[in-house]
Every structure is written in C-alpha cells, then in structure tokens.
Design a protein around this nucleic acid. Structure first.
Lengths: 337, 337
DNA sequence: AATGAAAAGGAAAGCGCTTGCTCCTTCATC
DNA sequence: GATGAAGGAGCAAGCGCTTTCCTTTTCATT
C-alpha cells in the first residue's frame, strides 16, 4: 500500500498536522521534531499525494496547453519550451491537440477545468472566446501564445509579425530583388495579415511594383504552397523572390522550383517564417524568420504565474521581436540576368 | 464559486449520493429522479471535480509519457499518436522530456507517481529499471514504446529493427549495390544493434564484401552523420550506398554528399530509419524505414489499459513490422560506372 | 387489508491532506 | 515563585466525491 501522511505521523510519534507543517514549512516546529519527521519521511520514502493536496484547495501543479498538433514542428517546439519552463517552476504540462477543431478544443477546455489545472495556455486560433472569458471570470488564468486575436482581452505573448515580415521583405529588397511575391496562409489570421501588410509597405517604400497575382493567400500546407508556386513560377515573367509566411509553404515553393527547373537561390530566393527544424534540413537551408520560442515560453508561463498569484489586474500583450536567420535560400539578384 | 455535487443535490432536492449515482450510472435510480437530476446538472453546468473523484480511489484519468524530447520529430509523432489514443478512451497525457538524463527521468517518475497517474509509458532508454520494477510491484502499470531493453520484464510495443534493417539493406542490394556502408547510433542500444546485425547478415547472404571501416557507430545526430559520412565518402574507393539507422544521420549523409559533390541518388543511395517528416522534406525525398507509430501508440495504450483492469498477468513484448518507404534517395546502381 | 421482496434513495464514513483554533509547555521577567 | 508571552503540537473541520449500509417506499401477492 502507498504510504500516507498517517503512516509517517504514527511512526514519528506526532500528529499528521505536524507532518504536514514540516513538509510545507509552515507553522512552528522545533528542530528536533522536524528532524525526526524528516527522517521518517526519508525512511518510508513518503511522497505526498498531489491529488489530496489539490483537493484541499491548493494547486494541482499542472497547466494545460492547447495547440493544434504536437507533431507539427513549430508547435512541438513551443510545447517543448513551455514544458521546460514549467518544470523549472515545478509544474507539469498537459498537452492537448485540437486539430483546429473548435469542438475538440471546447472539450479540452472542459476537461482541463475538471482536472483543476492551475492555468491554461492557448496556442490555437480559438473560437471559444466566451468559454475562456468565463474561465477568466472564475479566476482560472488563461494566456495565449503565438496566435493573436485582437478583439480578445487576454494575456498573450506574441511575435511581432509585422516586424518579421518587414525584415524578411527588406532582406530580399536589399539583395536587389525587384520582383517579389508573397504567399501567406489565411489572412483573416492576424499574423498572416501583418506579414502581408509589411510586404506591401516595404514594396511601396521602395517604389517597387506590386503585382496582384503575386499576392497569394492559401492554406498553410506544403502541397498548397507547391501548387500556388507552380502557378506563378511557370510564367517566364516570374518573381525572383518569394516570401512565405511559414516554412511549410516555403518548402512547397522549393518543390515547385525543382519541378520547373529553377535553382534556389540562383534563380529564386525564398524566405520562410518560424525557422522550424525543416528550414535547417532542406537544401539549400532556408532563410527564415525565427520566433524566439524559448523566450515566448518563458514569458507566457510567467504571465500565467502572476495571474495565479493574483498579482496582476491588467491584461497585457507582449510582442517579441523575431529574428531573420539568413541561410542559403536567399542570394543577391544580379540584374544582368 | 465552482458548483459542486452539493449544489446539484440541493437544487434537485435529493442527496449527494443520488447525484453521484446518476452521474456514474450505478445503483438504482427512478427515471423521474434521474431526469430531474440531469436537468439540474445541465442547468447548473455542473462538472464533477476529477481531483475529488481521483481521491476516492478511482482513476485520475491521466497517463504519463516519458520521452527524451517532444521537439524531436520522431517523438513528437509518438506523443501525438499516444495522445490520440488516450483521448479516444477518455484519458489525458502528461508529457515529460528527459533529455536522456536519468536523473530528470527519475524525477519525473516520482512526479507522475505523486500525481497518481493511472499508468506510465516510457519511450526512453531508461536507467531506472529498479524504480520501475517497484512501480509494477505497486500495481502502477508501466509499458515501453519504441525502445527495448531485453533484460527488462515489462510490457512493450516495439518495432522489429532487425526486419527493418533487413528490408533496408535488401532494398539496396536488390538495386545492384555491392559496396554498402552502415551508420548506426550507439550499438549498445538494441535497435541499432539489430540494424547492424541485419546489415551483416544481408551482406553475408549475398556474398558481398564486408568492409570494417564502413561499419560506423556514432551519435545519432545530423552533425555526427555528416562528419562520419565525409570520412568514408572522401576516398575514391567509397561505398555506393549507405544505410543510416535514423533519418538525422541520413540527412547528415546528404550534407556530406553535397559538400563532396556527390549526387543522390545517382552517385550514392541513402536509406534512413523512422520515416520522420524530415524524410519527406529533404531533396531528394529520403527512402526510409517507417515505424507504424499510430499502431504502436494504439497498442501500448491498450496494454496499459489491460494492466489497469487487472486483466493481464503475463508481460508481453509486441514487435510490429516496419515498412520500407521508397522515395527518391535510392536508385539502381549501374555497374557500368 | 396484510405481507414481504424488490426498488429507491439517504446517512455517513472515508480518500489524504491543509489549516484555523485550542491547549499545553517553556522560559524570561518581575 | 507568580505571571504572561512565545513556542510547539494536536484536534477536528473540511475539500468534493464514492460507496457501503440502512431505511423507507412501492407494489405484486395472498
């Protein structure tokens, strides 16, 4: 049988209150008693039941993370960093995959609440705003990471997508590219929209021509990237550089380029977004905008903690600066060509 | 305040026992009462506290997964499939990253036990055999996935690495390759060892020459793969095909080949192992041995469940057959060259 | 209408822990 | 030696639920 606090109390010849106090370092306990109790705990290999502890109103020491899919490298990395941070502060992480299905997400929100997690981190574009607002009312801390929905009043740690897009496009322009295309996922999502706006702005600032047919909006999958890229690259009047709002899209561009016989970076420069492991692995390595995922994880957990401690009244959104990682997929454009 | 079973009982004009019975569908309850209670539950949006439920001796509905790193695509996929399976049966998953550090692993084992998880799945080469045996004694189900340690008496779902290695090498031999190299991670791990043995056996069966310097054992990282590959590929008398015991190693080979100016698959065929997303993304797409991860996840959870139900007395190890996924990195060897 | 078995539902004892309250010791102080 | 303030430690309530016993109803039988 599992040893309980009673076993310890009995063997140490004290009451369970005393044992509890020793463990939690609360109340006054004489050194002698404390020592005795600790010895017994050691001897019995006693470990308090976190379930029972949780029931008495303290924390469960668990936080929930809701993301579309851990098998997606970007979210895997997010999960990893958040888990690291949680471990650091003695929490553990319950990871939930929604597949971008709002019903699954709602189911998980319910479940996390039933499990009395101490906080929830949301890494999806969520359609459960009202549920979450209810949670916040009930003092269950919730924060968002990576995805933004501007109409939500909620703590969030985000990347400045506009800045990221700006860096990516500026990089291409500085390399001498004049014929630029952009490929984003659904622009109703803030991140994609901001990339798009940054693109337009940089193009405008530099007095370059904006080609409507090179402003592509599609699903964020490799296959969609490939198909759309195939379309714009097939023409002889094609862009010399493409900025993709995520790495998978960029890799789709790689595939299209290969089919057509275009060399990267000689004939076409490509910039991705998120700097996932995929970017490092493709040939040539993909220039990509990196989100500071570790820092994001750190900060989102911190926001949650402060909310748990009841220290925070004001919701906040933190925008971290992304970083351009230059690899082999971008190259100076020789106008001689 | 959160609504409890008492609130429901009061509003429905029954005792909490009755509410509990309605929820769990136990005991005898008249349809009328049941209906009334359900209505109140609905109205109050009552959701039982799983913490309290767990304390009364029932399950926590949580299982723990211990892996080296979710950010590694192979383990991310494993985590994903196990999570899917857990959700199916109403469980949730606590994911723990050990970084292959035995102390971290032990810490997590303790933690999972304290959290009263209903079972633990281990996806690491573990050095905590004694701890785990203790858990099994205490009826805390534990099972392994992906990694085998033959001296453990424990439920496990594995892939038949020998078969996988055999398929990979046979594939290369059938393509006409006569000069084969193998690159594995640490051969003290069963999987690597079996790949190695399969390699030797196929070579022997086909009367091919075995070159000691082409039997490479190294760390399972891209960088190590690159360096070792560089060494054996630099010589003019080099292998025409390499079997790598994991995809990262294979990608290291890609990088080395590129440096030297060897084309894949024309000058060099490469086969990887695990069929991670990386295999699909590199150019040319990597031929790789796929582990049936979904099925593995399904079965490991099932083993755990049966253990929980107390149905099983005999430990078992299930070996699933891997599958060769032929892509663009392997090609018939023209002896004319 | 009396009888007893089956049906329905309540009371209460935990599960393992935290914590407010209370009570008993010690000492230092006068 | 009497007095009172700390210091130590125990009692018991309670967290929200499950489950064993028991009591009360209900209803078919005679």
């Amino acid at each position: 049988m599992k040893t309980t606090i009673y076993d310890v109390a009995e063997k140490a010849g004290v009451s369970i209150s005393t044992v509890s106090r020793v463990i939690n370092n609360t109340g006054r306990i004489s050194d002698k008693t404390r020592k005795k109790v600790l010895e017994v705990i050691e001897a019995l290999e006693y470990q308090p039941s976190l379930v029972a502890t949780a029931l008495t109103g303290k924390r469960t020491g668990t936080i929930g993370l809701i993301i579309p899919d851990v098998a997606n490298p970007f979210f895997a990395e997010i999960a990893r960093r958040i888990e690291d941070q949680c471990r650091e502060i003695g929490f553990s992480l319950l990871i939930c995959n929604t597949e971008n299905n709002p019903d699954t997400e709602e189911m998980y929100l319910d479940l996390l609440k039933q499990k009395s997690v101490d906080g929830i981190i949301i890494g999806t574009i969520s359609r459960n705003q009202y549920v979450i607002e209810e949670y916040l009312q009930e003092k269950l801390p919730v924060a968002r990471i990576a995805y933004d929905q501007p109409d939500w009043r909620i703590d969030a740690v985000l990347v400045d997508y506009f800045l990221g897009g700006h860096q990516a496009v500026s990089h291409l322009v500085q390399l001498g590219h004049k014929k630029l295309a952009i490929m984003t996922g659904n622009r109703s999502h803030a991140g994609n929209k901001l990339c798009y706006e940054a693109f337009r702005q940089v193009i405008a600032e530099n007095g370059l021509a904006l080609r409507e047919e090179w402003l592509i909006e599609t699903d964020s999958t490799m296959e969609d990237g490939r198909q759309k890229a195939l379309e714009i690259l097939s023409s002889s009047d094609r862009p010399t550089a493409i900025f993709a709002s995520c790495d998978s899209l960029a890799i789709g561009v790689y595939q299209a380029a290969k089919t057509i016989g275009l060399r990267i970076p000689e004939d076409l420069s490509v910039v991705g977004f998120n700097n996932t492991i995929l970017a490092a692995v493709v040939d040539p390595p993909l220039t990509s905008i990196a989100q500071p995922i570790q820092e994001m994880g750190r900060q989102v957990v911190e926001l949650l903690m402060r909310e748990m401690e009841g220290e925070k009244a004001v919701k906040q959104r933190v925008f971290l600066a992304p970083e351009l990682i230059v690899r082999g997929s971008t190259k100076k454009w020789e106008s001689a060509r």
